[in-house]
Design a protein around this nucleic acid. Structure first.
Lengths: 276, 276
DNA sequence: GCAAACGATACCCGCAAGGTATTGAACGGC
DNA sequence: GCCGTTCAATACCTTGCGGGTATCGTTTGC
């Protein structure tokens, strides 16, 4: 199977529409139809069930979508890492969610910088769920992920810390005076909606948010409330209040890296992290 | 980057010889030279340092070899799993080294077969180091691996059991009467040589072996001695003797599976295994 | 100093990838 | 129920690229 065919397939599978997929790919629709047909013939597998009005994935198609994405990511990662190896820039690239692990990250960077033979570390702060992409496609060497939110599927990981969660509300909020609140009490309230793995937002009442800064501003404006890990406290604005939520799931911070690529520098960073 | 280019590159990197690589690929040498040149230009990276007499990998080339193999495996796995998903054969394929885990495996298969909703399990017995390939390229769904011999890089794993190792010698061997023997005593003796990840054998005095049956026969013929996990005892021929080697590294059996692909059936098998 | 080995270059050919025009089937509006 | 719209498939053409043969230039071993 060729990468081009797979890219075409993934695009069609995402759009479920040959015209739009062809647009996205920058080619005309007929060649795309043909390419998919060819792929199906070569695999001997029907990937889509098509009427002249609709396109749907078959079960086998769903498998190819999942596995194919992983394969394309691996391909892209190979390319990126090769380029980086060539340009001699031996910097490590660490990616994490903006606003998360705000205490742990500087400690880690300082401790690693103090190690003998430490290389410079570039930090990428990105929105939620983008860090996985960065790590998978080779733009980053290592990430700080947060369970149970992020998926560590396909990465090697080490646990770094675990913490409880807090309810964040504006100063005048009815719950702001409470010493504790339980998840069941929050069940009906509109919680912010984070983008999924594919960049789209789940349906629901709460506002759409991409990062912590957005979220905190919305809370200050009384448009949202949220449950966040305790470590977010250090960068809360003055006019927000926190209430412990003892029964919220505990959040574990892990350091994650792609298998295969354990450079000496990366290994040292991981060792430093686990010793903090 | 296209899969074809990458396959070409990997072949040349393996052969370090354009002519032989072209032969293996079934194309002529000039197009191969061109393809590699194109790849280098597109990546903007020198992958080989060539004189007109020799070819060697650059550092970046070594990165691409490692990462590229992983990417090609992922591609092949995607194709295989798609085909299997289509033909509706929902069988699980388990792979393990012939002769290893001879006690654990039947227990696992029996226990799983008794589970509600169990699907048939095909068992592949292969030589050492082939199981990794099977799991990486989608021919198998799950493997029993043995640490510290096998690499679990890139797989998800669960530990199943751990055991010591025994020295295996023919009946008349000088060490056969001992109650215990240490690794240092065995240091000078010619141990069998197993094939590496790439199928070639390391240099050294001992005989080359591919699987346990070969090895045991060689031991019976007094051409070799070996240190093996305790569980091999159940399939030892009559005329061999065992001596405990307390300071040999302990062997851990793990069940391993590729990330991404956790079917219901696979999950059930893993659950069964960890409960044994 | 010559022949062999080996990668690079030059040049040609065929096919498959991509484009345009069109067909044909399924909805939706009236 | 008919027509216009939508959207995938088909037909047909063009071209660029992947592959082949012949050859060159450099290194190396005898």
């Amino acid at each position: 199977m060729e990468a081009r065919e797979l890219r075409y397939f993934v695009t069609v599978a995402e759009e479920l529409h040959f015209g739009r997929a062809a647009d996205r790919l920058g080619i005309a629709q007929p060649p795309l139809s043909r390419a998919i047909g060819q792929l199906e013939r070569r695999l001997g597998v029907e990937l889509f069930t098509r009427t002249s009005r609709s396109v749907a994935l078959t079960e086998a198609g769903a498998v190819l979508l999942r596995e194919g994405r992983a394969a394309l990511d691996a391909l892209e990662a190979a390319e990126r890492r090769t380029r980086r190896a060539a340009t001699g820039t031996s910097n490590l690239v660490l990616v994490t969610k903006a606003g998360a692990s705000s205490e742990l990250l500087p400690k880690l960077l300082d401790a690693y910088a103090a190690e003998p033979g430490a290389v410079p570390v570039d930090v990428i702060l990105c929105g939620v769920a983008e860090q996985e992409r960065h790590l998978r496609d080779g733009r980053a060497d290592v990430a700080l992920l947060h369970l149970p939110f992020d998926s560590t599927v396909g990465f090697d990981t080490e646990e770094l810390s675990t913490e409880g969660q807090l309810l964040i509300v504006p100063a005048g909020h009815p719950l702001s005076g409470r010493t504790s609140v339980s998840m069941t009490e929050l069940a009906g309230l509109p919680m912010p909606r984070w983008p999924g793995r594919d960049g789209t937002y789940p349906p629901g009442p709460g506002p759409e948010v991409r990062d912590n800064a957005q979220l905190l501003q919305l809370i200050a404006l009384d448009r949202a409330i949220a449950v966040l890990p305790e470590s977010c406290r250090s960068l809360l604005p003055y006019d927000l209040r926190t209430v412990p939520v003892p029964d919220a799931p505990r959040v574990t911070t892990v350091i994650a890296w792609p298998p295969h690529s354990r450079s000496r520098a990366l290994a040292a960073l991981i060792r430093t992290a686990t010793r903090l």
